[in-house]
Design a protein around this nucleic acid. Structure first.
Lengths: 144, 144
DNA sequence: GACACAAACAACAACGATTGTTGGTCAGCA
DNA sequence: TGCTGACCAACAATCGTTGTTGTTTGTGTC
C-alpha cells in the first residue's frame, strides 16, 4: 500500500475525509508485515488515542480494501486479517498460534485442466501452507 | 468418507453411540459433492426429522472430522463447510454465490524455498482458486 | 427382555467477530 | 466563518458456532 500521505490524498480525491483516526490507522498499517486483525489495529491505537472505536477501524479497513490498498484475508484463524502487501504472494499459516507469514517466491505455475474448470473463470489463485511456525515448534517439540 | 454402515460401526467401536439423528447425517453426507454447511445439512434433515437440533449437527460433524472421515474447510464464505472427500484435492470458490467445486488434478510440486520457510514446518498445502462459476457468469455476463 | 449408565439429545444462552443504527461532531469547501 | 454531508463513538443486532443443563436413549450386561 502507499504511504500515509498518499493515502490521505487518495481519500480526499475520492470524496472521503481524512480524520486523525484514519491517519493513525494508515500509519499503523504502513509497512506492517504482521497481518494484523481489526482488533489488533485497534489495540495498537487505543492506548494513546482513546477516542477511537473498533467500528471506525473496521470501517476504515473496509474502505482501504475497496480502494485496493490492502487485502482482507480470511485464512480460518477466527478473524479476518488485513495485509498491506498487495503484490501477489501466498501465506504460511501456523495452526497453533495463527501467525501468518508471507511467501513471495513460492509456486510454479498452478493450473487447472479445462475439463475440471467447467466454465469457471479463475480470477485469483491463492496458496495456503499450513503447519507450525518455528516458535510453536520450539514450545512443543514433540508436535501436536 | 466411508459408508453410513461403516461409520456406524466405527462410531460404536470408538465408544460413541449411533442414534437416528447421526445415521441420518451420515446418509446426507455420503457421496455429497456439494460441500454443505452445518446449516445446510440441518435444513436437509429437519423437514422429515423435526426432532433434530442444529447443535447436534455441529456436534456430529465435529466428531466425523475428529475421526478423519470428513474435512472442515473454511474458505471465507461466511460459514465453515464440510467435505466428505478426504483425498487430497483443492477447491474452486465462486466469489459470487460461494459455490465450491473440487479440483483433483491440479498442481503438483508447490514448494517454498527453505530461506522463506524460516523454521516453519509445512504440514499441508491447500490451493484456493477464486473467481466466478459458470452459473454466475451466465447471470452477469459483463463480469463483476 | 430388563437394567444401569454414560453418551447424546433438544433447548436454550453465550460467545467472538462483524455490521447496522443513530444522534452528535467535524473536515473541507464556499 | 458557516454549511453540509461524511465521519465519529456508542450502542444494539446479527451470524455462525459452542457452552450448559436437565432429560432421553443407545448399548453392554445380566
Amino acid at each position: 500500500m502507499r504511504s500515509p500521505e498518499e493515502l490521505a490524498t487518495l481519500f480526499r480525491s475520492s470524496g472521503r475525509k481524512v480524520t486523525p483516526q484514519r491517519e493513525r490507522i494508515f500509519r499503523v498499517l504502513h509497512g506492517n508485515l504482521g497481518h494484523p486483525t481489526a482488533e489488533g489495529v485497534y489495540a495498537e491505537i487505543v492506548g494513546d488515542m482513546p477516542t477511537v472505536s473498533l467500528r471506525t477501524v473496521y470501517q476504515t479497513l473496509a474502505e482501504l480494501a475497496d480502494l485496493g490498498e490492502i487485502t482482507k484475508i480470511d485464512l480460518g484463524t477466527g478473524s479476518a486479517r488485513f495485509d498491506p502487501n498487495v503484490v501477489a504472494h501466498h501465506h504460511l499459516v501456523c495452526d497453533d498460534c495463527g501467525a501468518i507469514r508471507d511467501v513471495t517466491a513460492a509456486t510454479t505455475d498452478i493450473r487447472v485442466p479445462p475439463r475440471q474448470r467447467d466454465g469457471f473463470r479463475i480470477e485469483e489463485t491463492e496458496v495456503v501452507f499450513r503447519g507450525r511456525c518455528r516458535d510453536c515448534l520450539a514450545n512443543q517439540p514433540t508436535g501436536k
